[in-house]
């Protein structure tokens, strides 16, 4: 009975808000490309693949709870936090220098502090999203600066991490205003059409990130060929 309800409700949500379906299915694209290019993956790109799997799997309960009309706000916040941690760890795995790792660890510590501040109600519920987004976005800018400092990459457009980093940068900074003004955009008590409009917006912005990830995975082979030349 409940399963039928979940399926029917999911179909209803999916047909009413197709953007949500696009947002949920988009990670399948980089996943498919990543699996296709699996033999060329490095440690960090493999970790990013795990992130995508995590993203897809953790999205399923969102649909189920939505279908069952169960409050999934806390789950959503925790999931968002974990997504950001996952992305930060991708950088951590990719970097070899100790100093870089120290910087990333300090970012991770700040993220966890923010999470706890929200958990204990010191900062308002939902505030962590833009703060963590800002931190992660700063990491991606820092990564680009490091990339420019060390111009050894022959073809940056064939460099997978350029695309991965672009995806993360895009996601973090393009969503920052929506998250910062969450009281006017995505909070539950916001005027419904506005609430859904910004949710749609978020879905599209997240989809762009996954498209950029897919391009990154596609370039794994090309990058390996350039390296071997």
């Amino acid at each position: 009975m409940q399963l039928t309800q979940i399926i029917n409700e999911t179909i209803r949500i999916g047909t009413t808000y197709p953007e949500y379906v696009v947002g949920s299915l988009m990670p399948l694209l980089p996943l498919a490309v990543g699996i296709y290019r699996l033999k060329y993956t490095s440690k960090s790109s493999k970790f990013l693949l795990f992130f995508i799997i995590f993203f897809i799997l953790s999205d399923v309960p969102m649909w189920i709870t939505a279908a069952l009309k169960i409050n999934n706000l806390l789950y959503g916040h925790t999931r968002h936090f974990l997504i950001c941690i996952f992305l930060l760890l991708t950088y951590f795995i990719g970097r070899k220098k100790k100093n870089d790792k120290k910087i990333l660890l300090s970012f991770l510590s700040i993220m966890i502090i923010v999470m706890f501040l929200e958990f204990f109600g010191i900062i308002e519920n939902g505030q962590h999203k833009w703060l963590i987004g800002l931190l992660l976005g700063s990491v991606s800018v820092w990564y680009f600066v490091r990339l420019l400092d060390y111009p050894k990459i022959k073809d940056i457009l064939s460099y997978p991490f350029f695309w991965f980093n672009s995806g993360i940068l895009f996601y973090c900074f393009s969503t920052i205003l929506i998250f910062f003004f969450f009281k006017f955009t995505i909070k539950v008590d916001v005027y419904k059409p506005t609430h859904f409009l910004f949710h749609k917006f978020l879905e599209y912005l997240t989809s762009v990130m996954f498209v950029l990830f897919a391009i990154g995975f596609w370039n794994l082979k090309k990058n390996a060929q350039i390296k071997n030349k």
Partner: peptide, 10 residues
């Protein structure tokens, strides 16, 4: 800009 600058640097 990153693409342009990196290529120039390279």
């Amino acid at each position: 800009f990153v693409v342009y600058y990196q290529r120039k640097q390279f």
